[in-house]
């Protein structure tokens, strides 16, 4: 049975995991930026600034 197992599966698996992790990270980032931009549209000016501040803090955390 061992002879029929492709030795590269683990290596490809790692690359797929990394791709999934990066994909997930991008999706979460996209979700937050869309959420903030829609809130910005709904809320009046003062509260909008607070949301923008929160969004920029969130980005800073992600960059770290």
């Amino acid at each position: 049975m061992q002879l029929y197992i492709d030795a590269t599966t683990g290596g490809i698996g790692i690359q797929m995991l990394l791709a999934a992790a990066v994909g997930g990270f991008v999706t979460i980032k996209l979700f937050w930026s869309r959420l903030f931009s829609s809130l910005r549209r709904i809320l009046p000016g003062g509260q909008r600034d607070e949301i923008e501040d929160a969004a920029s803090t969130e980005d800073a955390v992600e960059i770290k």
């Binding site: 197992i5 599966t9 790692i14």
Partner: peptide, 19 residues
């Protein structure tokens, strides 16, 4: 961890799932 341990574990999982 990534290049040795995880790769060995994924190889083992793949072999088991193939069976």
């Amino acid at each position: 961890f990534m290049d040795v341990v995880l790769q060995a574990w994924l190889n083992r999982k793949s072999a088991a799932s193939q069976k």
